[in-house]
């Protein structure tokens, strides 16, 4: 226990030498989901990625969730990301989004140029699709409007979005998603958010 001069205990160094991951890497590319959600601060896109990450954990997958934001608590542009993979995740930031969502025109215009044609895109219906958007698959859904009109609270837009995203991507089971949402919403708002989740799922026609 003491820092003794005599007992120099050499702790075993953590020397993880992994075999080259040649074959698994190509396979991993197919299963790796790189999700980027954008909007303005206060819309809850960070929480949306946290819920998706939580659902990923529930489903037994590796996840890495992070965000970038400006100094404003409300109104500034906000980018949140989550990577969901079958194998341990190296770089924790999204490089080539496989899924992108924008809730504001400003965020869409900012990030659209970096998206490949393979990226699946979900836009709020109120947004205008910029010409530079190459994505083959673009969903438009009234996320913000549904939150206000169908759910009855604008602030549930992020949960509506979560429902829609999972309906598009089939990331996790509805049950895992429900558990994840419930563990992250304030007490007393469970019913409201449950409704928001259902509304979101229905926005995407299977």
């Amino acid at each position: 226990m003491s820092a003794s001069k005599k007992t120099e205990v050499k702790e075993v160094k953590k020397t993880a030498t992994k075999a080259p991951a040649k074959t698994t890497a190509t396979k991993a590319e197919r299963t790796k989901m790189e999700i980027r959600l954008t909007g303005s601060g206060g819309q809850g896109v960070i929480l949306a990625t946290i819920i998706l990450a939580e659902a990923g954990v529930e489903a037994g997958k590796f996840v890495a969730q992070s965000q970038a934001y400006g100094p404003e608590a409300r109104g500034g542009s906000c980018k949140a990301e989550v990577i969901i993979d079958e194998k341990p995740i190296g770089f924790t930031k999204v490089e080539k989004p496989t899924f992108f969502m924008a809730l504001t025109q400003k965020a869409l215009d900012q990030y659209a140029p970096g998206l490949s044609k393979h990226c699946i895109v979900l836009l709020d219906s109120s947004l205008e699709t910029p010409e530079c958007l190459l994505a083959n698959k673009v969903y438009k859904a009234p996320i913000l409007e549904s939150a206000i009109k169908e759910v009855g609270k604008a602030m549930t837009a992020n949960i509506v979005a979560v429902g829609a995203i999972n309906a598009i991507l089939n990331l996790v089971s509805d049950e895992d998603l429900h558990t994840a949402v419930m563990s992250h919403v304030p007490k007393g708002t469970e019913e409201l958010n449950e409704k928001a989740l259902k509304v979101g799922m229905k926005l995407i026609k299977k």
């Binding site: 820092a3 050499k10 702790e11 160094k13 953590k14 993880a16 030498t17």
Partner: peptide, 19 residues
């Protein structure tokens, strides 16, 4: 010295695919 002379007890590093 209490830190420097206990290098083996304190220092840790990781080597990945270094062999």
């Amino acid at each position: 010295d209490k830190v420097e002379k206990n290098y083996d007890d304190i220092v840790q590093c990781e080597e990945v695919m270094c062999d």
